[in-house]
C-alpha cells in the first residue's frame, strides 16, 4: 500500500514538472500551439490533484508523519501558490494561442512568462521540501 501510494504521488509530481516544461517552451517563445497548451493544462490538473490527494493519504497512512508537520504544511502552501501562479500563466498563454495559432506564432507576454517562471521556482522549492523534509 505504501509503495503504491508513493508511486502515484511521485507520478503526479512528474506530471506537474511536465507542465512546467511545456510552459517553459511557451515562455521561451518556441511553442504557442493550443493543443500543446491543452496537454500542459490537463497534466497540471491531474498532477495537482494527484500530488495533493496521494500526499495527504500518505501523511495519514504513515505513522512517522502528521498532516500538521511543518514541512507538510509548507508543501501544501507551496502547492497552492504554484497552482495560482500557474492559473495566471495559463490565462495569458490561452489568450496568445487563441489569437495566433501555430508553434512560435506569437511572442510571450511578459506577465504570463513572469507567472510561469515564478511557478517554476515554487515547484522547485516544493521538490526540495519533499526531499529534505525539514523538521521531520
Amino acid at each position: 500500500m505504501y509503495h503504491t501510494l508513493l508511486f502515484l504521488h511521485v507520478l503526479s509530481a512528474f506530471a506537474l514538472v511536465a507542465t512546467v516544461v511545456i510552459f517553459s517552451a511557451f515562455a521561451l517563445g518556441v511553442g504557442a500551439d493550443s493543443r500543446v497548451l491543452a496537454v500542459g493544462k490537463v497534466l497540471w490538473a491531474v498532477g495537482g490533484l494527484g500530488t495533493l490527494v496521494f500526499g495527504i493519504w500518505l501523511a495519514l497512512y504513515l505513522q512517522n508523519y502528521e498532516l500538521w508537520d511543518g514541512w507538510i504544511i509548507a508543501a501544501i502552501v507551496l502547492w497552492a501558490i504554484a497552482t495560482e501562479l500557474g492559473r495566471r500563466a495559463e490565462v495569458g498563454y490561452t489568450a496568445i494561442v487563441g489569437g495566433a495559432e501555430g508553434a512560435g506564432a506569437a511572442a510571450p507576454p511578459a506577465r504570463a512568462a513572469l507567472m510561469h517562471w515564478l511557478r517554476s521556482l515554487v515547484v522547485l522549492a516544493l521538490l526540495v521540501v519533499m526531499i529534505y523534509k525539514p523538521g521531520a
Binding site: 512546467v20 508553434a103 506564432a105
Partner: peptide, 25 residues
C-alpha cells in the same frame, strides 16, 4: 520525463499534417 512529454506531444501532433513548427519544437 517532462521534456519527453513535450517532445512526444509536439511530434505526435505533427504526425498527420507535418506541421514544421511542431516538428522543430
Amino acid at each position: 520525463v517532462g521534456t519527453l512529454v513535450l517532445t512526444a506531444s509536439a511530434l505526435i501532433l505533427a504526425w498527420r499534417n507535418g506541421d514544421g513548427a511542431l516538428a522543430r519544437l
